[in-house]
């Protein structure tokens, strides 16, 4: 097995939030790099879920348990409170059933980790002021081919949590792999939330 020594900075931050030897569900797990790292470094016990069979194949290659499934249809394969952490990394903005997946995550898990590109990032605002929809490293699509249909800023996500009686346990905002503490909704391109039931 290839040992992954370095993770992408955004995945590393998520990994830091995961308790050793915990049970983790990674939604939209892609090639399984987060779970592979967590298995090797934190002895977690996890499953990834991905819509794409080729990603399931890649996960299997990486030694990660992967379940092919459609997040839009909910998480019926998983029983209540099965996991300590449920991760949804840079996927929520591309989902139809935004509220439902949040609720499902906290049904099957004690805590949810949600990350998304912050639409309020100044570079995005700047592009809008110039008369164009934002395109960036975190949002590399044109308006006509983007899978991202539900954009939000920090406050919007926090309002949605409040509406669903979900408590924000921790928030980190990053730009180019560096943490942003001053004016995060303006200066941060990626938002990371750790949330749980009130």
């Amino acid at each position: 097995m290839t040992t992954l020594t370095t993770l992408r900075p955004d995945l590393q931050l998520i990994a830091d939030w995961v308790a050793p030897a915990s049970r983790v569900l990674d939604l939209g797990c892609g090639e399984g790099e987060l779970l592979a790292w967590l298995q090797q470094h934190k002895q977690v016990n996890g499953y990834g879920v991905d819509f794409d069979v080729n990603n399931v194949v890649r996960c299997v290659k990486a030694g990660v348990n992967a379940i092919q499934g459609d997040l839009e249809a909910g998480l019926a394969e998983f029983e209540d409170q099965r996991f300590e952490h449920v991760v949804l990394s840079q996927t929520i903005q591309a989902m139809q059933h935004t509220e439902e997946i949040l609720q499902e995550m906290l049904r099957v898990g004690r805590e949810a980790i949600v990350t998304f590109p912050n639409f309020g990032y100044w570079q995005n605002r700047w592009q809008i002021m110039q008369g164009h929809m934002p395109v960036s490293d975190d949002m590399p699509y044109q308006w006509y081919n983007t899978p991202n249909i539900h954009w939000c800023m920090l406050g919007d996500f926090e309002n949605l949590c409040a509406k669903n009686h979900i408590r924000v346990l921790e928030r980190v905002v990053m730009t180019h792999g560096r943490q942003v503490n001053f004016l995060p909704n303006l200066r941060g391109s990626l938002a990371f939330y750790r949330v749980g039931r009130v």
Partner: peptide, 13 residues
Amino acid sequence: IAAGKRVSYGEIE
């Protein structure tokens, strides 16, 4: 999964 087993699942087109 409920029994805590290691499992992967593919639904092939």
